[in-house]
Each structure stands twice: as C-alpha cells, then as structure tokens.
Simulated assay, not measured.
Amino acid sequence: MTQSKFMKQKDFTTEEIVEFYNDTAWEYKAFWSDFNLHYGFYDENHTTHEEAMVNSNRIYAEKLGVERTDTVLDVGTGRGGLPIWIAEHVGADVHGIDIDRRHVDEAKANARRRGVASNTDFEVANFLDIPYPDSTFDALSGIETVCHTKRKKDFLREARRVLKPGGKILLSDGFVNQYDLTANEEKTMRTLADGWAVPNFSHVADFRAHLTDLGFTNVDFDNHRDYILPSSRRQLFLSIAITPLLKVASALGIKDESSVKQGIALYHQYDAIKSGLAVHGDFTATLGT
C-alpha cells in the first residue's frame, strides 16, 4: 500500500519509548492525570477536564461491550485507567500489559486504591509478544498505544491470536487520512511523531485493511474530533505555558530533550487535529468465528 513520505523515516526502540514516558512522567502527573494518559471526551454533560477523562473510559468500555463474565486485555495500559474503570464499573476480569515497569507499578497501585486489585492483573510485557495462550480473551483494547510500533499488522496478528472467536477489539489512536502531504504537513506530522516517540501514524484505510485481511468483521472507525477538541486545546495551552520552562530545564540538564519535543508536539497537535491533517479515532471490530 502507498504510504505518506514521513511514515518511512524514524523508528524507536522499546528502551527509547520507555525512556520517553519516564522522562515526561512528571508533566503527565502534574498537568494531565495520575490515572489516564489519553485525550478526554467532552460533551454537554462532561465539561471539565476531570469529567472528560472519566467519560472517555466510559465510552471506550461501552464500545467494547464488556460484560461482567468477560476476560479483558488492555495493551499499553499505562497507569491502568481504562481496565481499572472496567473492573470497577463492570466487574470483569481485566488484565493489562505495558513495556514500562513504572507504569505497571502505578497501575497496580491505582487498582488497589480503587478496590479492584482482586479482579485486575498488570504485568510488564510487549504487545508484539503477548504472554497469554491462544483464545484467552473476550475483548482487547489499546488506547493511544499501537502508534508506538511500525509493526502494526504484526500486533493485530498477535491480538487475533489471544482473542476468542467472536471476541471484540477496540483500538484508539492517532491516524492520518491522506497519503500525499505537502512539505509543511509532513514536517508537522514528523514533529508530532518525534514528540511522542512514534515511528509512524497509520493511514485509516491501511489499518482498516489490516483488520479485514486478518479476519476481523464489523470493522468500524469513529473520528473523535468533536469529542476531543477541548482536550486538544488544553494541551495547546499547556505547551504555551510550560515548553519555555522545559527548554530552560533541558539546557540546565534537569530535564531530557524528549520533554521539550513533547511540549512542541502538544503545540502543533491542536491545529493538526482541528484541520483534519491528523485524525484521532478508534477502530472497533469482531474476530470472525
């Protein structure tokens, strides 16, 4: 399949991705959330940042269609926001994997604080090599995580392996929706990718084709633009406020350059999403029986 030029440029090792999240952990906790690492979903009933973050977990869980008797896997689980919400509000048996030991420890601590340690399990693992037998899970989710690998179809094969026939998948992430980029558009998307330790953003059509090729049915894509614009705007304002400070801290050796790159990415993501150059959305699909 044809790919935009910037898609071929940079790769990030597992160690570099972990380092990115460790280097930017303070900013996430201080200015975003100690529970969720993703965009919040705003609507007329959820108008604050805190409400939007909770609302995003609720909407993702509803789309995944989890029931109390289900076993669920969340990949790239971060601090455990979505799986803990599912465990707390649905009562399902939930597992989460992440390549970052710090994230796994924080997810376990969050589960204990929410009183759901007994029906949650978090461990260090790579979603390209999921440490569970075939046909283990009724549902699988991944929120803003598959973007971190170039091997997106390989991940989907692994997801297919651990899902039961008829199992549901929900993957929310950043995508592109055009193949031919101008030089300025390519520069913007590369800035976003480098700022978030992302090798490439998949084209919506390519990702849909991967799911279909691997036997997933009822493939649907939902563009989150209207839900997340206020959340995206908040990131823009945070960038304006803190990026100059991060540059000084980096020059003094207090913060790593990755924090500065993320600050710059937060500045550019708002216009990219608002204009449609970047697309934030989720795929849902069912594994064929």
Results as ranks from 00 to 15, higher is better:
232 S>K: 05
289 T>S: 12
194 D>G: 08
3 Q>N: 14
157 R>P: 07
253 G>A: 13
197 A>D: 06
180 D>G: 03
209 A>W: 06
33 S>P: 03
235 Q>D: 12
268 H>F: 12
20 F>L: 00
179 Y>H: 15
213 D>T: 08
226 D>H: 13
235 Q>G: 10
122 F>Y: 13
265 A>I: 04
203 H>L: 02
247 K>L: 06
284 T>N: 11
161 R>K: 15
3 Q>L: 15
44 E>K: 10
215 G>M: 05
157 R>S: 14
56 S>E: 01
52 A>F: 11
235 Q>H: 09
27 E>F: 11
11 D>L: 12
230 P>V: 02
204 V>R: 08
6 F>R: 06
177 N>V: 00
289 T>W: 02
74 D>R: 05
185 E>V: 01
70 D>A: 02
116 V>M: 12
211 L>N: 02
273 I>P: 05
24 T>P: 07
269 Q>V: 13
126 N>I: 07
121 D>P: 05
251 A>I: 07
173 D>G: 03
285 A>T: 00
105 D>C: 08
66 V>P: 05
164 K>G: 06
75 V>C: 07
233 R>T: 06
145 T>N: 09
187 K>G: 07
50 E>D: 08
150 K>A: 15
273 I>A: 03
215 G>P: 00
168 K>H: 08
32 W>G: 04
278 A>D: 08
223 N>C: 15
62 E>G: 12
86 I>A: 01
23 D>P: 04
200 N>D: 12
154 D>C: 05
177 N>H: 06
58 R>Y: 02
3 Q>P: 10
63 K>T: 07
216 F>W: 09
285 A>Y: 02
200 N>M: 07
187 K>H: 03
184 N>H: 03
89 H>T: 12
254 I>V: 15
252 L>C: 11
270 Y>Q: 10
